[in-house]
Amino acid sequence: MRVAESSVTPSPQLNSGRIAQAFTRCDLEGSRALIAFLTAGDPSPDRTVSLIGALERGGSDIIELGVPFSDPIADGPVIQRASERALRSGTTVRKVLRIVEELRRTSQIPVVAFSYLNPVLRYGFERFAADAASVGVDGALLTDLNIEEAAGYVSEMNASGLDCVFLVTQTTPQERIARIAGHCGGFVYAVSRAGVTGVRSSIASDAVPLLRRTRRATSLPVAIGFGLSQRRHMEEVAPFAEGAVVGSAFVRLIEEHSRDESLEARLEALAREFKRGLDWSPASDAAVGR
């Protein structure tokens, strides 16, 4: 059954938190948000704040902070290896929260915790929401939690003032995109293509139709991710999405230069390169179809 693509408009999510502010600021500055992913604790927990600082100096607007998991079924080899390194260095959910607590002494960059369900389930939704809010986490995305099973999680998170981010994909029917967006706060994360995370040479042509479909379903900002690894990818998606998520490209750099003092400088430079690709003037608003 085909559902009319523009027929469903969920109630807009009220959000005056750091994530919403970041998108508003980008809008005013004439750019799209650069959302930088890194795995907490890779290569070690005491380096993560410094790496986030470098990404922020390079122009990242939001941090997606990966919570390592032993069985990352949605991740390609680059982030799988990062998870293994982070687990070997003793990174637990508790430690990830401590990292954010430390980060907040020096930075107000929005942080979205990016995790598989089981570590958060084990920590407890209520406790996670409360502890995450108290250390300054802004939201979370649980990769393997679908909306059908998410009611308890969403209510605990929202009660603590945290945004829940969910994924929409090219296989997601329009009616389901609307329902997913209705569960989201902060932004909706659109997955650019089939497959797992990882660096790709081109962004699938499916990305733009998905972004258009998602736009029709929500008034929230839409960010695109999976496979974005080059400046030209940023330029390709900037007209169609309010944010672009870069993960494996940063994580690979961390892997290659983890023992190198120049790592922070390299991350900063790469972030700056990506952010330049996200310059976008509202004059081209027509391209988005609003």
Binding site: D144, N146, E148, T169, T171, R176, V191
Partner: peptide, 10 residues
């Protein structure tokens, strides 16, 4: 239940 990457739900 079903706890799958969203791409696999459909």
């Amino acid at each position: 239940g079903r706890y799958a990457p969203e791409i696999l739900v459909t």
